[in-house]
Nucleic acid binder design. Structure first.
Lengths: 325, 325
DNA sequence: ATGAAAGCGCTAACAA
DNA sequence: TTGTTAGCGCTTTCAT
């Protein structure tokens, strides 16, 4: 069963079809500028099919100097349901360009990303946010042709999420806002960027900046945070994400508070549990599919040498109003 | 910036250290049976370090006939937070054996798994549940040396989850159970297996089998399901997973029912939102880290040729009792 | 229209 | 102890 069924090579196909390996290569790759008789072509194709021939990825990569592999690095924990949608869409969109996406989810003791890049022979390395310059350099030295994203405009997308949250609360008449930050920041820059967006919206509306508190994912901890906001006169809270918003809701319950009257709460990311919360959670949803497609185009453009490619990810998010605000 | 900084080769290192490529290879791989003078060894190591040399994965794979790559295939949607923990642990555990784990999240239009296996030159292909025999064959033909898991004992782990759920409810005195199945079964065999475990526990306790209903992830739909159970005299419900359990809770609220008095509810997977639900959700947690390590050992054993490797994943789950039951 | 041959970066016999 | 060499599977000139 673990029978390493000997893999068929281009030579096997050539022999089976009674031609040379070169001819096989020409046929299978549709190499332009070669006129192969229809009969030969058919024989080759048939033999390849019958032998379940698949070109050897390593050999191809070795000769062409670049593989068809795109490596997506996801640093750690925040693998939410939504990221799956994003990856799926990205996979499909990249497949159209003949690229194969695989994801590396580095654990704690895990090897460095450049190492992974080298052993997988990845041509492109993708991240959720830009890599540090030193990492970019190391990745190139490890064989990466392109490393993206480059400059997401200082987290423009993330800031936009924050702005959407705050503007909604402000438009509802809230003047004193709270911001629920993740407790143990495993979210990199993201948390700061979303918060920044909230602050920007406050400034624009001439409202004081939010009372920002790290909010743990347990009822008691969240209850203490809620209490503090109550003392400060906060009436509306933006949470870094839906999970934290759920914690805030749970903390409120401890004090007999209900949203939105006791405290208006808005989350971000639109996870499935948000719709099922009590009350249903207002949140900011992102069109992951759209982002995935845009990202794929960016990769393709970069690989083709476009020097200043689009990098447009706006128009991908919208406010989803539910009962919690 | 997309400067494809020319990658250094083993020849570069050899030149820099003033030795031959073979010597470089011996030193870097600690090839046994070679006595290299400390001085030479040092020079080679230093040169490799300075040039940021990393062996070319494709070249290695080509010559050795097998890469160090393990490909984990996750069919679709159910990428919950927890799977991230599992993957991370698996990554670390495999790294100890010198293996690199990457994940393939196939989208809709995406290429076939054997294709991905061939282009990535993966040596091992992993799935969350056993692959169909035809797929296994195709994967071997695509170059996979091992394809796992083989036979999870007909979903023994999944059945165990179901048994744990039902036994808990039964021990609480419930005699008429409900089972909340996912509405659009994107969960493959898993759903049926967990349900099977519930049925087994019912049989063992001489309780009628559960009233099984597909439960949508929205409040109204779930409310209808709850109503039906109420009519049937169901007093305790096992949900396929926590998300669905959350939906059941939401549906109950529509009828003014609270858990556990109105209906006892138990989920599975212990997602973060479970703890934050109203009331906090009793669930079955799986020690993902443990499963990850066990899986890694299985891979290593198989690669080393052990014909009937362990495949033990029991002792990895436990009941987490909270207020909903 | 097809075949022969070289070579991608690396490792491992085999020589020296 | 170190260097020379062949060859992994494939693509691609260059001859035929």
């Amino acid at each position: 069963m673990t029978r390493p069924t000997k893999r068929s090579t281009s030579k096997d196909v050539a022999d089976a079809a009674g031609v040379s390996r070169a001819t096989v290569s020409f046929v299978l790759n549709n190499t332009p500028g070669q006129s192969i008789p229809e009969e030969t072509r058919r024989r080759v194709l048939e033999a390849a099919e019958r032998l379940a021939y698949r070109p050897h990825g390593s050999a191809r990569a070795l000769i062409s100097g670049r593989s068809d592999i795109v490596l997506l690095s996801i640093p750690t924990l925040p693998v939410q349901e939504n990221i799956g949608r994003f990856i799926e869409e990205l996979t499909d969109a990249l497949a159209v360009h003949g690229l194969t996406l695989v994801t590396y989810l580095g654990g704690a003791k895990s090897r460095s990303l450049p190492d992974v890049c080298a052993t997988t022979s990845a041509t492109v390395v993708l991240g959720l946010e830009p890599f540090a310059p030193a990492t970019v350099k190391a990745l190139h030295e490890a064989g990466a042709v392109a490393v993206l994203p480059r400059h997401t405009g200082d987290g423009a997308v993330m800031r936009l999420i924050g702005r959407l949250q705050a503007r909604h609360l402000i438009s509802r008449g809230h003047r004193r806002l709270g911001y629920a930050l993740p407790a143990h920041s495993a979210f990199g820059e993201t948390a700061g960027q979303r918060l920044q967006g909230v602050i920007e919206a406050c400034v624009a509306a001439d409202v004081p900046p939010p009372s920002t508190v790290e909010t743990p994912l347990d009822v008691d901890g969240a209850a203490r945070v809620v209490e503090r906001w109550a003392q400060e006169g906060v009436t509306g809270v933006c949470a870094f994400n839906d999970e934290i918003a759920l914690a805030v809701l749970a903390g409120m319950r401890e004090h007999g508070l209900a949203a939105p009257s006791g405290l208006a709460v808005i989350g971000a990311d639109d996870i499935p549990a948000a719709r099922l919360a009590t009350p249903p959670l207002t949140t900011v949803g992102v069109d992951l599919a759209g982002v995935g497609r845009a990202f794929a185009d960016l990769v393709a453009a970069t690989l083709e040498g476009a020097e200043r490619p689009p990098e447009v990810f706006s128009d991908t998010m919208r406010l989803i109003e539910r009962a919690s605000t």
